[in-house]
């Protein structure tokens, strides 16, 4: 059984069909890439899976469990963590505090425990911190731990976002354009990192425009165009697919025409 199974996924905003009848299956331990021209509906698919939008039609099953209609925090707790296309850190908190957020759904202490500072609550707090620190070390941002997130360079902010997502102990990690804004060297490091995360047993689903990254790291790639899936396969298969080539090149033609008009 695939870890994530999406079938017939459909979502429209007003009259615009953002995602139309998309089927997807991601096996445990896979790295799945998703590509497509701007506006193809890639981020909408992510937002549907993580519960930020509710699909009009279709099914989303994670490890056999139906995710449709669940709140985002329940989905995070179920084991799906994500990053955002436009970085969404907590800008005025330190890097450590940001990453500690990921531990929230893995800890329990409530009002009474906090008021009484019970041994159990203190042990849990220490654990939250330790786990967060572990992710900081893994992502190589330990030296930034006491800096405010907003003061970090762009590339490092992306690392904090990944660390925060990893802190939730996900089984599926969803990355929305992780290489955006990174230079070539940073992209290469990112690819190594993505593979390393997979080695830890975490399945990965990523949107990426940087073809070098997405083709280099993915086991399989799906291609979205105008909200519909037009191709799926290994990177080599997808690159050779005439429909994919047309979607990319054809779109560029249209854009050029509309640009001049």
């Amino acid at each position: 059984m695939p870890l994530l199974q999406v079938s017939g996924l459909t979502k429209s905003f007003g009259g615009l069909m953002a995602v139309h009848n998309v089927d997807l299956a991601i096996e445990t331990g896979q790295i799945m890439g998703m590509i497509g021209p701007n506006g193809a509906g890639k981020t909408t698919v992510f937002n549907l899976i993580t519960g930020i939008y509710r699909p009009d039609r279709g099914q989303i099953r994670f490890d056999g469990r139906n995710l449709v209609g669940l709140a985002p925090h329940v989905i995070a707790e179920a084991g799906i963590a994500r990053t955002f296309q436009t970085i969404r850190l907590f800008p005025n908190l330190t890097v450590l505090e940001n990453v500690m957020a990921g531990r929230h759904c893995r800890s329990r202490a409530g009002v009474v425990a906090a008021l009484l500072r019970s041994p159990r609550q203190r042990a849990e707090e220490a654990d939250i911190r330790r786990q967060a620190e572990q992710q900081l070390r893994f992502m190589n941002i330990w030296h930034f731990r006491n800096e405010l997130a907003k003061n970090l360079p762009y590339g490092d902010q992306r690392r904090v976002e990944v660390a925060r997502a990893l802190a939730t102990a996900p089984r599926l990690l969803i990355l929305d354009e992780p290489a955006a804004g990174l230079n070539e060297q940073e992209s290469a490091a990112l690819m190594a990192l993505i593979r390393q995360i997979r080695e830890m047993g975490i399945t990965i689903f990523l949107i990426e425009h940087d073809m070098k990254v997405v083709m280099g790291v993915s086991d399989r790639v799906v291609v979205l165009d105008n909200g519909s899936k037009i191709a799926e396969g290994t990177p080599a298969e997808v690159q050779a697919n005439p429909q994919v080539i047309e979607a990319y090149l054809g779109r560029e033609d249209e854009e050029r025409i509309s640009y001049h008009v």
Partner: peptide, 30 residues
């Protein structure tokens, strides 16, 4: 009591919500 709450899991969750509610929700904060 309020200081203890502020420096607890719950207190941090309040700060996350204040800073970026959507990100907090996506990271598993109810």
């Amino acid at each position: 009591g309020v200081q203890r709450l502020e420096n607890s899991r719950l207190g941090r969750a309040w700060t996350y919500v204040r800073e970026d509610e959507l990100a907090a929700e996506a990271m598993g904060v109810d």
